[in-house]
Amino acid sequence: MSAAVLYNNALRQTQQLQKEIASLEAGEDTSAAVQGQITAGLASLQRCANDLDDMARREVTAQKKEKAIARSRKVREDYTAIQQAFTQWKIADRARVATAEREALLGSGQHAERRSSSAVHRHGHDPQSTDTAILMFDSMIREGDVLDASGNRVDDILHMGQTVLQDLYEQRDMLKGAQRRLYDVANHLGLSTSVIKYIERRSTEDKYIFFGGIIVTVLVMWFIVHYIG
């Protein structure tokens, strides 16, 4: 699959997820099926972002690589925004459910209190079961909030880990590029050294030929002057 096709698929998934999130926030459809679709869509969108990161690292030209990185960043930003909106909606929905349950419990507690009040008049004692139940319910709500906060922190840590891993991949590619350039320079320097050595050797040979020619020329002139002249 090409980067363009993958990016277009990611855009379609983003639009679908945004519609589903809007439906949740408006209260039109808050079923478990819709929430499951959003969870699956977020996982698929995250895979698209990772695949776009891999394709961007494999691009050869700087222009294509920059374009691929921009697309990957856009998809990852959309994923983060949708994930945060979904998390906030789940927290608000849990708060609404907890409030409704607490109000129902308080209502039943008031009804039980009225009944126990009559029992007090009849038997001479005041039961504390309703207050205990309310305290236990409040404690469960606080524990749920703590667990939600811990889950959000874990998600943040995972996201930071993915970001760090992506930076390490990019640094590795930069180091590989620098290593290739060093090899090229080393090969170029090796070739230059060979050329310099060849020139020095040729210069030495030319020097010997030059002095040899001078000696031969002097001998020939001496021979001509001494025997012919």
Results as ranks from 00 to 15, higher is better:
residue 184 D to L: 08
residue 53 D to Q: 04
residue 227 Y to D: 07
residue 148 D to V: 08
residue 159 H to F: 07
residue 203 S to F: 11
residue 25 E to G: 00
residue 148 D to L: 13
residue 15 Q to V: 05
residue 41 G to F: 01
residue 121 H to D: 06
residue 129 S to V: 14
residue 1 M to C: 04
residue 66 E to F: 05
residue 104 A to D: 09
residue 142 R to T: 07
residue 97 V to L: 11
residue 228 I to R: 03
residue 46 Q to R: 14
residue 145 D to S: 06
residue 48 C to R: 05
residue 149 A to C: 02
residue 22 A to R: 13
residue 154 V to T: 12
residue 160 M to G: 01
residue 137 F to C: 00
residue 29 D to K: 06
residue 88 Q to G: 03
residue 23 S to W: 11
residue 213 G to T: 14
residue 26 A to W: 02
residue 46 Q to N: 12
residue 55 M to W: 00
residue 122 R to M: 10
residue 58 R to A: 10
residue 153 R to P: 05
residue 175 L to I: 12
residue 115 R to F: 10
residue 210 F to E: 10
residue 71 R to Y: 06
residue 13 Q to V: 02
residue 122 R to C: 07
residue 116 S to W: 04
residue 25 E to T: 01
residue 20 E to K: 04
residue 115 R to P: 01
residue 229 G to A: 10
residue 171 Q to R: 13
residue 63 Q to P: 04
residue 164 V to G: 00
residue 220 V to Q: 06
residue 90 K to L: 15
residue 14 T to A: 07
residue 2 S to F: 03
residue 86 F to E: 01
residue 96 R to Q: 08
residue 151 G to C: 09
residue 163 T to K: 15
residue 116 S to D: 15
residue 171 Q to C: 03
residue 19 K to A: 13
residue 9 N to E: 15
residue 167 D to G: 05
residue 43 A to F: 01
residue 90 K to S: 10
residue 80 T to F: 04
residue 42 L to M: 02
residue 97 V to Q: 11
residue 189 L to R: 05
residue 178 A to D: 04
residue 46 Q to I: 02
residue 109 G to D: 02
residue 21 I to V: 11
residue 182 L to W: 02
residue 116 S to R: 10
residue 53 D to K: 07
residue 124 G to D: 09
residue 22 A to Q: 12
residue 193 T to F: 14
residue 40 A to Q: 11
residue 144 G to Q: 08
residue 23 S to G: 02
residue 217 T to D: 03
residue 82 I to C: 00
residue 139 S to I: 00
residue 66 E to Y: 01
residue 168 L to I: 09
residue 207 K to E: 10
residue 8 N to A: 13
residue 85 A to I: 00
residue 226 H to E: 13
residue 179 Q to F: 09
residue 197 K to Q: 08
residue 178 A to K: 08
residue 147 L to N: 13
residue 27 G to F: 03
residue 33 A to C: 00
residue 73 R to M: 12
residue 197 K to I: 02
residue 69 I to Q: 15
residue 111 H to F: 12
residue 222 W to A: 10
residue 82 I to F: 06
residue 98 A to T: 01
residue 209 I to N: 08
residue 15 Q to A: 14
residue 120 V to K: 15
residue 79 Y to E: 01
residue 65 K to H: 06
residue 59 E to D: 03
residue 177 G to L: 04
residue 126 D to S: 09
residue 211 F to W: 06
residue 49 A to D: 03
residue 49 A to G: 15
residue 82 I to Y: 00
residue 189 L to W: 07
residue 145 D to I: 09
residue 165 L to R: 12
residue 185 V to D: 14
residue 136 M to C: 09
residue 112 A to R: 14
residue 151 G to R: 15
residue 213 G to L: 05
residue 120 V to G: 08
residue 138 D to I: 13
residue 64 K to R: 13
residue 93 D to A: 08
residue 17 L to I: 01
residue 178 A to F: 11
residue 130 T to P: 05
residue 214 I to P: 02
residue 63 Q to N: 10
residue 9 N to S: 12
residue 175 L to M: 12
residue 123 H to I: 02
residue 197 K to G: 05
residue 191 L to I: 15
residue 16 Q to A: 15
residue 73 R to F: 11
residue 24 L to S: 02
residue 149 A to I: 03
residue 70 A to D: 04
residue 116 S to C: 11
residue 205 E to Y: 09
residue 183 Y to K: 12
